[in-house]
Amino acid sequence: MSEAATVGPRRRPGVHPQLVIGAVLVALVVVVALVSFAWTPFDPIHAVPADRLQGPSAQHWFGTDRFGRDVLSQLMVGARITLYVGVVAVGIAAVVGIPVGVVAGMRGGVPGAALMRGADVLLAFPGLLLAIVFGAAFGAGTTTAMVALGIGAIPAFARVARSGTLQVMRTDYVLAARAANRPAWAIAWRHVLPNIAGIAVVQASVNFGLAVLAEAALSFLGLGTAPPTPSWGRMLQDSQQFLGTYDYLAIAPGVAIAVAVLGFNLLGDGLRDVLDPRLLGRRR
């Protein structure tokens, strides 16, 4: 290690604005979603024609839509779908992608390359396109969307896991473990996985944001969550016919989407700064 590196700037642990803001925003979305199970200001689905298209007021903080439904209540329930889709999509991608990447990284040679090539074919299908294809073939809906988004994100996890694994496999401590005749699964479990956990968590956080965006886009296209279940993307779509007159209908769900995505992105960036340098720092 060079002398400059040891005396270079080092972030104080604990105080990390990106991480803190990200965590707060994510927590906000999660809390809102949880609260919506127990309580919302109004019934988000029940139409009240008399109250239609009211602007923000003390009673309806974010106003009401064209059927007189409370926008805030819809946003709160919409947070559930957003998180649900994100968790399942990222879960599928991580559960399939990380093992594929680790095996490809540890085995190398023909089987490893074949695994990665397989994952790379998926790169030709960005998540949104895959979701549209699935929607066309199997009918659009929440389940189709999150499975498609999950499959679409597999290569991202596989690539990250593979490059992390390759780095770990090059280290002397893996060589030491092999020299001590530890079996491959033990090396994967004790050395590889703990050391790539950090970058995997970062990837998960970033992909969560992408899944939220993609779900909103699908709902916006009418290929996501079916009505009447509220979803942020469809609220935006519904707002289109009132543009220029009732802009709050677009701004409220739009900001909600942005807040959720920003939260996960910041969280990911913060985690990267905290977790990643240790893995990278050992390269030299």
């Binding site: 944001g209 909103a216 739009g254 989407i257 942005a258 992105n265």
Partner: peptide, 8 residues
């Protein structure tokens, strides 16, 4: 900016 959906 990254967090804002392009359709918004």
């Amino acid at each position: 900016g990254v967090a804002v959906p392009n359709f918004l």
